[in-house]
Design a protein around this nucleic acid. Structure first.
Lengths: 340, 340
DNA sequence: CTGTTAGCGCGTTCAC
DNA sequence: GTGAACGCGCTAACAG
């Protein structure tokens, strides 16, 4: 018995209507210039008439190319990663790729689950945040031989490709600057994730023997404006007497902005009494009063670069040993304004 | 000729190793309780041993269920929509669904392209931002009979389901409040998208004959802190003499925050000289000095509700005429702090 | 430039 | 509780 007509129009239906073979229709869609103009017009007319929309799942199964890239971020409700996702999505779209998004919540077990699912969905590439993954994850990834880009860090042993910057060096640069400004006791206030820790390590490295070891305040991941305010409030209460730091390096600009507000409310003069340094150079930083000194990191560019690396890899006609650029250090930049 | 072994392990390979039929393996994965425990253990062992990862594309093609939901936002690098995406992703994940993300850039033509592609990918549901879409888009959507949720607004003629709030009523509530506070000349400063316009319309409706018609300043979409500062700077220069508004209602909290900063820099007292009202109640609002009065909208909840509506629809066993809740008005709330 | 053949890897359906 | 056939809708590979 012939198959009854289903909901949607199929390639076959279009082919019959146009009086050509299925493959010809397929070619009109995927490689138009390999079809004679007359036939092509006939087919295009049939497509328009039927309102045919190709079933990309079927196409993907047959060609084993999904044109989907997976991306896993700790969380998306954070300007920081959102910018990277934006850059990624935009540049991927130009290559005809779509983005499957996952949130790990800073949890490697969740990340691993997502990686497994994404691999099952046969993504053509994967963009990860950071360089610290579970052993299972890296094993899966190497086994699957999927192009992978790690972002937001500069791993020593990358899984595959990288579009990032060195958190350690960024922290070190901040430390160097602050010590040169004469600060003896510096405080670091940020979350506990690996990248934050790398910046703290950099700060400590810059310190060396020149000053006291930085105080470290670790906040819950995702702490934001309110968290920054709280840091100042706590500091003012507990350590005003002798161990008040003269400078604080925050894990992100939102925290620093909150801190600035609390200083404003308490009449603490920035930077005279307390220097404040942010991280990321969000839109807000330049527009605060006083304007926030911070570290500009290539948020958007990491996404764009990741897309670029992936597209290059995916379009490559077997480079036959030719090494592609795999590691992109996009750097960072100290932006010195008023607050430090 | 038998097919040579490909890269990855297939269901068949696992079945052979376990000495059972393919279907048994499939059942172990999808309906474990329909398989005898002994057989199940054998199969699970084989799965573990081979590191088998099911090809979800093939599964989707066969079952015509992709377990993917598409979501289109104007832009993701904006705390506002990012929150919604977060809520959506999280709740979708609990039902085993993943998120395909698209950015329309406030462009309906781009949105339509994305809808077409997503339909081709056979998404099980679609979440859209706003209620204004191209004719082509709504036609596609109705034809495809895909569950759709519109968010961030309360359309009169929804395509299908809705999880949003009324932008018009929100604007009206702000207007009502500000007029009650004695403001005669109010200014609206926001972007030109449809939802922003609805709020302006609400503001105007609240105005009625009680006061002058609000001044409207339309900003480029995505304008943020810097844009807010600019509004104040422009206003101070051009209309200080006679037509200076006594209150400004901004399209989002970032703009309002920027405005607050510019007032701080210029010595304009808020709210005495100028009342400032934000929109969205971002994390930043409560932590500004002075704290920002704003309209709290259910950003995260819209995402969660959209996921809920979709999951309910997708799991439904033919409700046989039973109407499901399709329109969820999640409301909004005036949050009055110090700035207005 | 166009058509034919043979699956992609899995789930549905119905036997047993 | 388990197995066999068939096809989801499309494209790769090779003819012609």
């Amino acid at each position: 018995m012939p198959i009854a007509h289903k909901n949607s129009i199929r390639l076959k239906d279009v082919a019959e209507l146009a009086g050509v073979n299925m493959m010809t229709v397929s070619r009109v869609i995927n490689q138009p210039n390999k079809v004679a103009e007359a036939t092509r017009d006939k087919v295009l007319a049939a497509i328009k008439k039927t309102g045919y929309v190709p079933n990309l799942m079927a196409g993907s199964l047959a060609s084993s190319k999904s044109r989907i890239v997976g991306c896993i971020v700790p969380t998306i409700d954070n300007s920081i990663f959102a910018e990277t996702v934006r850059g990624l999505t935009e540049n991927l779209a130009q290559g005809g790729y779509q983005l499957l998004l996952g949130q790990s919540n800073y949890d490697n077990a969740v990340e691993d689950q997502l990686v497994a699912t994404f691999l099952g969905r046969k993504v053509d590439g994967l963009v990860l945040t950071g360089s610290v993954h579970s052993a299972m994850t890296t094993k899966r990834l190497r086994l699957a031989k999927v192009p992978v880009v790690e972002t937001w860090d500069l791993p020593e042993k990358p899984i595959d490709m990288v579009a990032g910057f060195s958190n350690f060096e960024a922290g070190k640069a901040v430390g160097k600057y602050l010590f040169e400004q004469g600060h003896k006791l510096i405080c670091f206030a940020g979350s506990e994730d690996a990248r934050s820790s790398a910046r703290l390590a950099g700060l400590q490295a810059a310190c060396g023997k020149k000053a006291e070891k930085p105080i470290s305040i670790r906040l819950a991941a995702g702490a934001s404006f309110a968290g920054g305010r709280q840091v100042i409030a706590d500091l003012a209460q507990t350590s005003l007497q002798k161990h008040m730091p003269s400078a604080i390096f925050f894990g992100n600009d939102a925290l620093a902005a909150g801190a600035l507000m609390e200083c404003l409310a308490r009449g603490i003069k920035v930077p005279e009494q307390l220097a404040i340094m942010g991280f990321a150079d969000l839109d807000i930083a330049a527009n605060l009063e006083p304007a926030l000194s911070t570290v500009r990191v290539p948020t958007r560019q990491m996404g764009q670069a990741a897309a670029g690396l992936l597209l290059a890899r995916l379009s490559t006609e077997r480079p036959a040993g030719k090494a592609l650029v795999k590691i992109q250090d996009l750097g960072f930049e100290l932006v010195l304004r008023k607050s430090a």
